[in-house]
Amino acid sequence: MTPRRRAALALATTSLAAFGLSACATADEPADTTDETTAPETSTSDGTTTDSGSSAYADGTYSADGSYTSPGGEETITVTVTLADGVIEDVEVENPETTNPNSLRYQGEFIDGIAAEVVGVPLDDVSVDRVGGSSLTSGGFEDALETIRDEAAA
């Protein structure tokens, strides 16, 4: 019932997918969703995810990695999202393999900040297309969320 999948992924900037203030989820990136070929269980190739509600996503816990380039080198974060009734119940962000000490404080701030905003926000709550002032870390977070969204699409 709780598929736990892991996907290392090609980088892909999307808008923040899960924040109420964010997310160009399906409606904003039809090219991404309709061209989906990496997740065959995503049976929505006709683009119906665009107008379906939160039920477009299968409940469960999903994990994906995202990476970004910091001045100190490539960094990876792992984002784990728990979905219930198509809504994000919980988000965890961790950086398992950080070797760049300069990033630690930076990522610590990022990790502290995420959960508070995200809890209870519908995945399909589309309200912006992109983020300004966006941090390097957010890019990795967005990447991971995009993969999770693809995987969770039912």
């Binding site: 808008s15 905003e117 309200s127 300004g132 002032g133 870390t137």
Partner: peptide, 18 residues
């Protein structure tokens, strides 16, 4: 295009939209 203003104090948050 709608742009979120990322909160520099708390990455992943926004202080507004333009």
């Amino acid at each position: 295009t709608r742009v979120a203003l990322e909160d520099p104090r708390a990455l992943g948050h926004a202080i507004g939209v333009v």
